[in-house]
């Protein structure tokens, strides 16, 4: 369930091999994601499309902006969701449940 409009992991990125390749500063481009945040999570939010009325409160309150609203049902980018649970806590219709991750 990967949302199409969200930025994604830059899989082509390689760390500089030598001192000559290194750039000055913290990064050479804006928006270069080299690691996912999904490992931070203990619980994952699951949206029940049947209960959701698209009030978009979860979308606006999400600190990481992982909830996508382009498709018919709201989507979650599980690569960058940290599982904080704000969306489930604030949902007025209780349409989001936090499900424990299983390894």
């Amino acid at each position: 369930m990967k949302s199409g409009t969200k930025p994604g992991l830059n899989r082509d990125y390689r760390l500089p091999a030598s001192e000559g390749e290194m750039i000055f500063g913290t990064g050479d481009v804006t928006g270069n994601l080299t690691a996912v945040n999904s490992g931070w999570r203990t619980f994952r939010p699951v949206i029940d499309g049947g209960k959701c009325v698209r009030c978009l409160l979860c979308w606006v309150y999400c600190p990481d902006g992982v909830i996508g609203k382009e498709e018919k049902d709201l989507t979650v980018d599980y690569d960058y969701c940290k599982g904080c649970g704000i969306c489930a806590h604030e949902c007025p219709r209780a349409a989001i449940s936090m499900v424990r991750e299983v390894s």
Partner: peptide
Amino acid sequence: DRELIYGQKSCPGCGATIAVRL
């Protein structure tokens, strides 16, 4: 729906990130 701050390493539930994102 486009995010201009994304994938940052702030704590889960960070209020500061909400402010910058909005």
